[in-house]
Each structure stands twice: as structure tokens, then as C-alpha cells.
Amino acid sequence: MEVVISVLVGALVAAAVYLMLSRDLLRFLLGLILISNAANLSIFVAGRLTTGAPPLIAEGQDFPADQVANALPQALVLTAIVIGFGLFAFTLVLTLKAYKRLGTLDTSEMRIAEPRDE
């Protein structure tokens, strides 16, 4: 299972880098979402995958009796997803605003803060 997800992470990163190399800001943004999901998945795999063993501790005990799924990476990924979602929403609005104010999403045309003649 780890291998499958690792390959998936690789495929996601490849697609993301391809998209992010584009001059179109929207394609860049889509690439950013893909690569952040790749990062989330790699944290998930980093905790090793266990099937069918929820991390529950029986009553009266301090630690689980058998090997259980690692809950920490899942908590981390959950945090990262929430943060990533907020950032993505902001970036999407920023892109929209950039299109409205600057009239283009071609990053090589965005030279207002850094004019060409300097």
C-alpha cells in the first residue's frame, strides 16, 4: 500500500510541477493544490499504513494492546488540509482580483510592481 501511495505522490508532484511551470496564474494555482495534496499524502504515508486497526485504547488501559494505526500523521494532515484550504481560498480571490485589476493572468505580463525599464 505504501508503494502505491508513494507512486501516487510522485505522479501528483509531476503533474503539479508541469502545471506550475505555466505562465497562466490559474494553472499555477491548480498545480499548487495538487502539490499540497501530494505533501499531505506523503505525511500520511510517513506514519506507516495499517488497515483495520483503529487507534482505540480499551477502557482501563494506558496504551493499546496490539499494533494500531498511527493517529498523529492523520491529525497533522487534517490540520494541513484546513490551513491549505484557507490559503487556497485566499489565493483564488487574489487571482480573481489580479485578473480584474491587471486585466491578465499571464505572469510575464505582470510587471507593474517591477517595471521593465529597471
Partner: peptide
């Protein structure tokens, strides 16, 4: 939200 700010902001954010 001036043009410069949006332009600089896009690069900073990305």
C-alpha cells in the same frame, strides 16, 4: 488593493 500591491502580492503569495 492598488495595482502594484496586487501584482507584488501574487508573487509573494505564490
Amino acid at each position: 488593493g492598488s495595482k502594484e500591491q496586487i501584482d507584488g502580492g501574487v508573487k509573494y503569495v505564490a
